[in-house]
Structure formats: structure tokens, C-alpha cells
Design a protein around this nucleic acid. Structure first.
Lengths: 244, 244
DNA sequence: CAGTCGTTTTGATACAGATCAAGTCATGAG
DNA sequence: CTCATGACTTGATCTGTATCAAAACGACTG
């Protein structure tokens, strides 16, 4: 990973080429991006943006995992987003953000200064269009999470979270279960994502291990040994939109 | 209100002219919208869009109040959005929505067929740009609500909700407290918005009446008699972004 | 390899808010 | 005016999850 961290990649070879803001861009448009982009790297634990910071750049997450979170005065915190490769950080039309962005693992960002980027949007409809798509997708995700936070039980929350990891991690892969998965967060971070305490997360994960729904090889790596049971435990409709 | 419901208004006289998708449009552009738009009305309680419906039109809410909500199989429901005048319903780039939109009061929508509207976006950057702004604003709101749902106490939830009503209802008005406000939802609907039960909503509102933070003239109309106390009870930072 | 720090597990207890169960209060219909 | 229905209130009890506390487990450090 350390080599990846520093290597400058050309857009055409970029691992997030087809999912990031640049997804709809033609070769010509990529050339423009190529000129503007710079890479920034962050170590695990580093803050990427702090609440109230002046927003000087925006960018796409290329490698690693980062979190968005909001914190109350007394320290209670709620994660409001989990950023995986191809996700976008920052927004146009505003110069401040009202949450913290933190690198959870080592992170590489493909960045653009905000001014030139805004000019780019005005001149490159493909980027603007993709940005809307991504914003609306995020909105859908946020609303799904509102349902989770407001109405699901601890068990359903954990199951939904794991199920989301499955879907996001082996996109396009084979649909067989028993696939190696990474848990990119500590249990405390999972708790902050799900509106729970870390003790409850531990107990619920423990229960799912005992029921052999999950099998952990170490703290960070596991597989789903009973996907149907997991899906059932999410509390959602049986079919995830795929009609029988 | 019934007269308003059916009256066709020209864009230049439209009450949401400066806040809706059309906010940035020039006179010429409004002329185009004028050709495309049609009004639709709904009675209180009517469904506007149902989950899984084919999305054939999009539109702006002109008069009234509507809710977005998601429901689990066993009936637990969570409101994921409260639509007030100028808010936008529908999205581009997808033909289905995964939540229900319901009219809470009588509602008038300014609608566009989705096909011509998508063409419009492509040709009218002012609309596209406004749409992005609105999507990102909604995303901010959704994330604020995630913090509320995941981490706030019942009392903080109620206080935050009322405080939001204050802000959205007398936008641009004088900053004095003691202003007549409308509670557009039943307590059961408030409960679904806040991830609580209706009994808890009743008790917390009762407590705030007893502490003379709120004063109700009838079920639906009230005023905030102690705004600082309300703000304190939200659990948020003291200043709502306005520096002293 | 002993020591330390962050993470996870486990147990006992407390409590906020849910649930269950009657009421009471409005409003509108006949 | 009476009845019916939906909205709200109030009280008693239950329970899921938080809280408090301690120990066990790893991974890294010197």
C-alpha cells in the first residue's frame, strides 16, 4: 500500500476512473482533469477536514477509508457517512462544511482546488451531471440510514451495517456468500455509525458469531457464513429490489 | 386556501419564485418553464407518490405540507423529510423512488413531465445548478437529522424539531420570539419524524408547556415564549452559526 | 520478554423511553 | 344534541440499551 500511496497515476489507469466524478468524462476531458489534479495523502487517524474549516479544495477518495462525523458539545458523536474509494469529499457553492472528515486508514485523495473546480463544472457538463447523481445517491443512502437510526433495533442495525459492507465490497463480484470481507472500523466507530454504544456492538457481533452468521479470522477480517440469515436480520424487505 | 389551490399563477408572481428550482432563472428561462408547467393538487391525506411507483413527473411544492417516509415490513415508519413550499419532489436519473410522499395538508404542486424536464436541465444550466444546490442542502439537513436520530434525547429531539419550525417558518421575518407558529403535523407524525412514540412526544411537549417554553393556543397553533431556553434544550452549539 | 496502550469482551445495574391500558378532549356528522 | 371517531393525555409497567466497572486480549515498544 505504501507504494500506491505516493504513486501518481494517470487518469486512464486510475482505479476509480469509472465510478468517481470523472466517470462520464471523455478522453479530452480527462486531459483537463489531469492538469488540475494533485494527490494528497493522509495517515490513518489524520483529520482531513475539520468542522468550520475554510474549504479550499475538493477531491475524490482513491485509496483507503474515511469517515464523516458530527459531534455534540458534550462529546456524543454520530457518523453521517462512510467514505470508500470513488466517494467525493467537499461541496461546491459553500465554503465551509459542518462535519469532520477523518482518515480511518491511510488515505489518498485526488484533489482539485475549489476555484478551478467550480470553473470546470461550469464548462464540463459531464462532471456537473455526475456530481448531481452522486449527491442524490448520497441522499438516498442518508435517508436509508435515518430509517436505521430512528427505527431499527441494535441487532437490525448491526446486520444492516454488515450487509452494506458486503454489497459495497464485492460489487460486481460473484454472488456466492462466504467471501472475505474487511471491517474497516473499530467497534467504537461502528457504534458511532449506528447510534449505539461500543458494548452493544460487541455483544451483538458476539451473538452473530455464536449463531454462526459471521466468522471472524481476526479482528479485522471476516466472512458471512449465513447470508440469508443476515439479510433476514436486517429487518428490510426480503428482496433488495430484485424481483423474483 | 381553496381559491389558491386552483388558481394558475404566472411564474413571476409565484410565491416560491426565488427559492425553488427556478430561483436562478432569467425572464426568458421562466417563459420556457411557463410553457412546460402544470399544476396538480392533492387533498390532505392523499398519497402523492408511492414507493416503487414509476416516476413520471417531478415538481415543486407551492402550497401546503408533505412528508417523505420509509416503512419497514412490520409497520415501523420513519419520516425522512418534511416538504414545505419551494421544496422539490422527485429526482432525475432514476425512474423509481424508495419512499412514500404524502400530502399532510392540501397541497399544490408545480409539475413537469420528467422527460422534458431532463431536457430542460441539459439546456438550462441555471436550473441544473440550482438543483445541485438544493440536493446538497437536503443532504446537509439529512445529516443533521442523523445526528438527532442517533444521539439526541427525546427532549433534545422535540426542542430541535420546534426550533427548526421556527427557523423555517419565519425566514427573513423579525428575530423577536413570541411569534405565531403552525404545527403542521399530528403528534404521531412528529413521533415518526423524530424516531419516538406518540406518547413520548405528548409528554415532552407537555413538559415544555409546563416550563412555559411553549404556549399553545390550540392543537395546531403555538408560540415560543422562551426561545433561549428552547435553543438550550436542543443540545446544539449555542449559536446557530451566527457569530456574536 | 515485560510493559503499555488501545481494543474487545463480559457482567451487574440503572434508566429513558417503549409498551400497554384507560381515559379525556375535540370536531364533525347525522 | 348525541354520537362517533381521531387526536391527545396520563398512569403503570416493562425492557432494550446505556452506563459503570473490570478483566482479557493483542499488537507494538524499548
Amino acid at each position: 500500500m505504501t507504494t500506491e500511496l505516493l504513486a501518481r497515476v494517470t487518469c486512464t489507469e486510475c482505479p476509480i476512473r469509472h465510478r468517481a466524478v470523472c466517470a462520464h468524462c471523455s478522453g479530452d476531458e480527462l486531459d483537463v482533469l489531469e492538469q488540475l489534479k494533485t494527490y494528497k495523502t493522509f495517515k490513518a487517524g489524520d483529520p482531513i477536514l475539520w468542522r468550520g474549516d475554510k474549504l479550499t479544495y475538493v477531491g475524490s477518495l482513491v485509496y483507503g477509508v474515511a469517515t464523516l462525523s458530527k459531534t455534540l458539545e458534550d462529546g456524543r458523536t454520530q457518523m453521517v457517512g462512510l467514505l470508500l474509494p470513488s466517494d467525493f469529499i467537499g461541496r461546491t457553492g459553500r465554503t465551509e462544511i459542518d462535519f469532520d472528515v477523518v482518515a480511518v486508514t491511510d488515505v489518498t485523495l485526488c484533489c482539485f482546488q475549489i476555484k478551478p473546480f467550480e470553473a470546470l463544472i461550469a464548462s464540463t457538463p459531464h462532471v456537473a451531471q455526475r456530481l448531481v447523481e452522486m449527491a442524490l445517491d448520497e441522499l438516498d443512502v442518508a435517508r436509508e440510514w435515518m430509517l436505521l437510526l430512528g427505527r431499527k433495533t441494535a441487532r437490525e442495525k448491526i446486520a444492516t451495517f454488515i450487509h452494506m459492507l458486503v454489497q459495497r465490497q464485492h460489487m460486481g463480484g460473484t454472488e456466492t456468500s462466504n467471501q472475505a470481507l474487511v471491517l474497516p472500523l473499530t467497534q467504537e466507530q461502528v457504534a458511532n455509525y449506528l447510534g449505539l454504544t461500543l458494548e452493544t456492538v460487541s455483544r451483538q457481533l458476539g451473538a452473530m458469531k455464536k449463531q454462526s452468521i459471521l466468522r471472524f479470522s481476526d479482528r479485522r477480517h471476516f466472512e458471512v457464513s449465513d447470508l440469508p440469515a443476515l439479510q433476514l436480520a436486517t429487518g428490510d424487505d426480503s428482496d433488495g429490489g430484485i424481483l423474483v
